[in-house]
C-alpha cells in the first residue's frame, strides 16, 4: 500500500504541536515545526516559515528535499507526522474533510505536470471546480471560464483535449483552473519544469502578473533560480528537511553559508 493512496485527511496527525484549530492570526500561511517521514526517510525535519498577504515565497532545494511534499501538506493532500500548518489562522493538519474542503476552495494548486483531467476539454477542466462550488448560470460560467483562459492566453483552445496541447499550454490551463474559485493562496509545484526558456519565462511573467493584479499569496517550488528572481519576495532554501536560509533574494545571495553559495552558483 502506498503511503498516499488512502491516507485520510480526516484522521489527525500522530502528534500535533497545538490542539487549537483556529486563532485570530490572519497570516495567509504559517508553517511551524513541520515533520514528515516516509518509512525511515525523514523528508521534512522541522520546517518553519510563513507567507504574508501578497507575498510570493519561493522554495528552493535539491531534488528529494521534500519541496513537493511541503506543498502537498499545505494543500492537505498528505498529513504531517507533527507540526502545524495554519491558513489564515486555521489549523489544517488533522482537520476533518468537510472543513478542509472549505479551506481548499481558497487554495489554488498548479501541479508539476498540470494534472489536467485528460477526458475533459480545456473548457471543461476550468469549469470543473466552478460547476461544483458556485451557483453561476451556464452563461455566467462560460463567461468566467473565457475570462480565466484569456488571462493566461488560452482563450482560443476551449474545445481541445489536454493531449492536443503542449506542456506550456497545459500549465496555462492548469493555472486558469487553479484560479477558478478566486483563491487567496496559490501553490506552484515546479511551474517551469520541462518547458523551453521562452515558455518558462512566460509562465514566470504570468505569476508576476497575478501577484500584481490579484495581490495573491503564493508559494512556488522551483529549480529555476534565475526565473524565480523576477517574482520572489522571499526565498527559503531547504536542505535535509530543514530551512537553511529564509530571506529576500539579495539576502540569500549575500549569505556566507557554503551550501547556499554553492547552490546559487551551480543553479546559475
Amino acid at each position: 500500500m502506498t503511503a498516499s493512496a488512502f491516507t485520510t485527511t480526516s484522521e489527525p496527525a500522530a502528534d500535533q504541536t497545538s490542539p487549537e484549530t483556529t486563532s485570530s492570526d490572519a497570516t495567509p500561511l504559517k508553517v511551524s515545526a513541520l515533520h514528515k517521514s516516509f518509512g525511515s526517510q525523514h523528508v521534512l525535519a522541522g520546517v518553519d516559515f510563513k507567507a504574508e498577504q501578497g507575498q510570493t515565497v519561493v522554495v528552493l532545494g535539491r531534488s528529494g528535499t521534500g519541496k513537493s511534499v511541503l506543498l502537498k501538506l499545505i494543500a492537505g493532500l498528505q498529513q504531517p507526522d507533527s507540526g502545524s500548518i495554519r491558513i489564515h489562522g486555521q489549523e489544517i493538519a488533522g482537520l476533518e474533510m468537510d472543513r478542509l474542503n472549505q479551506i481548499r476552495k481558497k487554495i489554488g494548486f498548479l501541479f508539476q505536470q498540470a494534472a489536467l483531467y485528460d477526458s475533459l476539454t480545456v473548457q471543461e477542466n476550468v469549469e470543473f471546480p466552478l460547476r461544483r462550488h458556485t451557483t453561476l448560470s451556464d452563461a455566467e460560467r462560460r463567461q468566467k471560464v473565457g475570462a480565466l483562459l484569456a488571462s493566461v492566453g488560452m482563450e482560443h483552445d476551449l474545445n481541445k483535449l489536454p493531449s492536443d496541447i503542449s506542456g506550456g499550454m497545459q500549465k496555462r490551463v492548469g493555472l486558469a483552473r487553479a484560479l477558478a474559485l478566486d483563491p487567496d493562496l496559490l501553490l506552484f509545484d515546479e511551474p517551469t519544469a520541462g518547458l523551453d526558456p521562452i515558455t518558462a519565462a512566460e509562465i514566470g511573467e504570468l505569476i508576476l502578473k497575478l501577484k500584481k493584479e490579484r495581490n495573491l499569496t503564493s508559494v512556488v517550488v522551483t529549480h529555476d533560480v534565475q526565473g524565480a528572481k523576477s517574482f520572489a519576495d522571499r526565498v527559503i532554501l531547504l536542505r535535509e528537511g530543514k530551512v537553511v536560509i529564509d530571506g529576500t533574494f539579495s539576502e540569500v545571495e549575500r549569505s556566507s553559508d557554503s551550501f547556499v553559495a554553492r547552490f546559487l552558483r551551480d543553479a546559475a
Binding site: K72, I107, F109, Q113, Y117, P129, R132, R177
Partner: peptide, 13 residues
C-alpha cells in the same frame, strides 16, 4: 499523473 490530487485540491471528493 496527480489528477486525483488535483480533484481533492478542488474540494471534490
Amino acid at each position: 499523473t496527480e489528477q486525483i490530487d488535483a480533484m481533492e485540491v478542488s474540494a471534490v471528493n
